[in-house]
Amino acid sequence: MSQPWSYRDGVNSDTSLSLIGFDVEATDGKIGSVDEESNAVGDSYLVVDTGFWIFGKKVVLPASTVTEVDPQNKKVFLARTKEEIKNAPEFDEATYTDPGYREQVGDYYGRDPNLP
């Protein structure tokens, strides 16, 4: 996964569709809903509000983690487990758009989840 901030081929090709408010499903269940999104080329991501699941925490998910968007049911499906998302770099409202933080998140999600 060399481009963590780009959608996979065939996923979310309709960038005019807002995903805000869509439910977000990890491979093992719902993790929250989309609070914010960016569809900038090479810099696409979702900010997901996890609600009570991680005590109101938000997480940044690079576009490459999305495997499917279901506009009819308003759901976004991810290629990551709840545990992987929970262990991602901490979200900080003040710094989540900074290059250093984005590099951390990109590195975290860009590595093969099957490797240690």
Rank of each mutant, 00 (worst) to 15 (best):
M1N: 11
M1H: 12
P4E: 07
W5D: 02
Y7M: 09
R8I: 03
R8M: 06
D9N: 14
D9V: 12
D9S: 12
V11K: 04
V11E: 01
V11H: 04
N12G: 02
N12P: 06
D14N: 15
T15Q: 05
T15V: 08
S16I: 00
L17Y: 03
S18Y: 13
S18C: 14
I20C: 09
G21V: 00
F22Q: 00
F22A: 01
D23Q: 15
V24Y: 01
E25K: 12
E25F: 14
A26G: 07
A26M: 10
K30N: 15
K30C: 13
G32R: 00
G32T: 12
S33Q: 15
V34S: 09
D35M: 13
E36V: 09
S38K: 12
S38G: 06
A40G: 09
G42M: 08
G42N: 15
S44Q: 09
Y45G: 05
Y45E: 08
L46E: 02
L46G: 08
L46K: 09
V48C: 02
D49Q: 09
T50H: 00
F52G: 15
F52Y: 14
F52P: 14
W53P: 08
G56I: 12
G56C: 12
K57R: 15
K57H: 07
K58H: 08
V59L: 08
V59R: 09
V60S: 04
A63L: 05
S64T: 01
S64R: 07
S64K: 03
V66W: 11
V66P: 04
T67Y: 12
E68W: 11
V69L: 14
D70V: 01
D70E: 12
Q72F: 06
Q72L: 14
K74P: 09
V76Q: 06
V76W: 00
F77S: 14
L78W: 01
L78P: 02
A79D: 15
A79K: 10
R80P: 04
T81K: 03
T81G: 10
T81A: 09
K82R: 13
E84V: 01
E84Y: 01
I85S: 02
I85V: 13
K86G: 03
N87K: 13
A88R: 01
A88H: 03
E90F: 04
E93D: 14
E93P: 05
A94Q: 11
A94I: 06
A94E: 13
T95H: 06
T95K: 11
T95C: 03
T95Q: 09
T95F: 10
T97H: 10
T97Y: 06
P99C: 03
R102Q: 14
E103N: 02
E103W: 00
E103D: 04
Q104V: 02
G106I: 04
G106R: 05
D107R: 12
D107T: 10
D107S: 11
D107N: 12
Y108W: 15
Y108T: 01
Y109A: 01
Y109L: 00
D112K: 02
D112T: 06
P113L: 03
N114M: 04
N114Y: 08
N114G: 04
L115F: 03
L115I: 01
L115T: 00
L115W: 00
